[in-house]
Amino acid sequence: MQGIVTTIYGPDVNTDDIIRADILQETWDKRDFAAYAFDKYDPDFRTRCEGQTNVIVTGPNFGSGSSREQAVYAIAYNNVAFVVGERDPVTGTAYPDIFYRNAMNNGLPLVTLDDIGGIEEGDELSLDLANEILTNVTKGTDYRFTVPAADKALLLAGGIIGMARTDIEKLLA
C-alpha cells in the first residue's frame, strides 16, 4: 500500500485530539467520524486528505489517552492507509497499548521507526507489510521495521471478527 504524507505531528497526540468527545455517541456508523477528525487540533487535516491516499507521520505516544476506538475510524475513513510513528527511546514504543489494539483490530497498520527525521510532507511512502519494509519513494530511501507476527497476520487478514466467530461456535457447540 502507498500514500502521500499529509501530516507530520509532534509527540503526545491524544485520542481527544483525534476525535472530539461530544460526537462519539451521536452515530454508530464508523464512517461518520471522518468528518470530525482532528477538529480541535488540526482542522485542515480533512481538506489535506481529500482525493488521495494518505499517511500520517508522528512523534512518540500517538493515540495516548482515551480508549475511544472512534479515533481509529476517524483516521482510517479519511483515506489514511497507515501511520508511521517515531519510537520513544526509553519505552521502545511509539503507540500506547489501547490505541495500538484498536488500530490492529480495525486493520490500520501502525509502523514504528527509530527516526522519522528524513520524512517530509508530500513524500510518497510505500508499505510492504509482509516483508517489513517502508520505502520513501520520493527520497529513494528504505526503512526496515518489525511487526509482531500475530499483528501482521491480523493486518493481512483484515480484522479479528472471523477469529471470534469461530470461538463462539465452539462455545455454543
Partner: peptide, 9 residues
C-alpha cells in the same frame, strides 16, 4: 481500558 471491538469480542 479497551475499545469497541475488544469489548464486542
Amino acid at each position: 481500558g479497551a475499545g469497541t471491538t475488544d469489548a464486542q469480542l
